[in-house]
Design a protein around this nucleic acid. Sequence first.
DNA 1: ATGTCTGGCCCGGCCAGA
Length: 257
Amino acid sequence: MRIASYNINGINSRFAVLERWLKEFQPDIVGLQELKCTDDAFPAAAIEALGYSAIWHGQRAWNGVALLSKVGRPVETRRALPADPNLEQSRYIEAAICGILVGNMYAPNGNPQPGPKFDYKLAWLDALKAYAQDLIDGEVPAMLIGDYNIIPTDEDVYKPERWKKDALFAPAAREKFRELVEQGWTDALRKTHPDERIYTFWHYWRNSFERDAGIRIDHALLSPPLAKKLKKAGVDRTPRGWEKTSDHGPMWVELKL
DNA sequence: ATGTCTGGCCCGGCCAGA
């Protein structure tokens, strides 16, 4: 079973890329972020035609998250964090699929910092942490996937000094991620690539992808019952090289269920 | 410091957000 997370950066403007990636890589379950469309504008029929059932939580122009599955219809369990500090923003959707609770998020970017956007980022991460602790306490076979907008360590960025002033690399944000993982979650990509630089995002400008000047901000955290079933994890770099593509590459986790 | 791309506004380039 292959579960992927992909910040598509506008589902309608990137639909050709999404379609090609789904066809070529055949993920079983996909969490999408940054749909940048209203619920009405979500390309439901086209996704259904590709063999995926979907649930989505859109928003005009910004944010937006969806879950796709070709291994059974997602049974929606949440469309916001329990203590979400701003319900206007579509940043979380969750479903039970094949006995797994899949939480898919688009965490706040937080720039510029310091400032209200950074405060919101930290408040949102606090709400995530509180809910994540409940999932750990309940021994739920859960995974929290998506764009966390956090570079966890110096090993997750091509040139740490270049990101020193960015909210994605701010000590307070990195601390939240560390505390979250320490609840007992397994960072699937880092677990399977302990000594490797592995990125999920490359800026559009300055030939970042060609130079591999990337950062790792898309993550999959597995609760202990699921971590036991982790086989492999990786990043599909191929779609990042396609025309009119997202600035992220899809990351994936393979579980033996 | 720079740099790129999209959606929104409403029809032509700007601006915000990332």
